[in-house]
Amino acid sequence: MLSIMNLHAGINGKDILRGIDLEVRAGEVHAIMGPNGSGKSTLAQLLAGRDGYQVTAGSVRYLEQDLLTMPAEERARAGIFLAFQYPVEIPGVSNALFLKTALNSIRKQQGLSELDAMDFLQLLRDKMKLLRMDELLLPRAVNEGFSGGEKKRNEVLQMAVLEPKLAILDETDSGLDIDALKIVADGVNGMRDPQRAIVLVTHYQRLLEFIVPDVVHVLSQGRIVRSGKADLARELEQRGYGWVEEQHPARKAA
């Protein structure tokens, strides 16, 4: 589904990604772990189509298309979803209007008719129930005045409504207490599907206790320095990121 080859990218002349290779197939859950500044969020945002990054080498193919030439909205319509590390507040625009606009944009692209108001509301209510979200968040402006946990749950709600093919969750676990983490994890697990791939970007192993990945990658200095099964995450937790970096001194020097 997603194939990243030798991706080099940076921002304002500063290299951040220095040769990423990553293969994600439908049905898989990948975790990308790494210390602060390793390039995790850059990778996530770049895949979602954020402007401002310069790709200096490499390629990204998504469902047989050249992803890097597509604007952000086309990527979303083609099934890519990024759950933001810092969800943005949109004053004056209700959560309901935002979700309706987004869903209709995507449905239109897929040749589906727009959902009528009643069906849409029913869909939203069902999804919100699963995430134990208060319906009062619907008429409120997007993320405005939401608690940290509400914002993260709102990201997962959007994912549940938009039903992407490739979901990238950027530090969705940060700032969540254990109860909220479980709710979010349940939401994500409920979306595991043979047709869908999920990429979890996280600093901590904690989230991976609840969403068990098929593959764990360790990102360091803009490269994937190690990949393994779920137990790699636990090993990292015990030994720290220094352990991986020590094993790759040559790369660190580069």
Binding site: A48, G49, R50, D51, P71, A72, E73, R75, A76, R77, F81, L82, F84, P87, V88, I90, F98, T101, A102, S105, I106, Q109, Q158, L162
Partner: peptide, 11 residues
């Protein structure tokens, strides 16, 4: 904000 909306499929 613009990126956030566009990342949800809104042109």
């Amino acid at each position: 904000s613009l990126f956030y909306l566009r990342s949800r499929g809104i042109d």
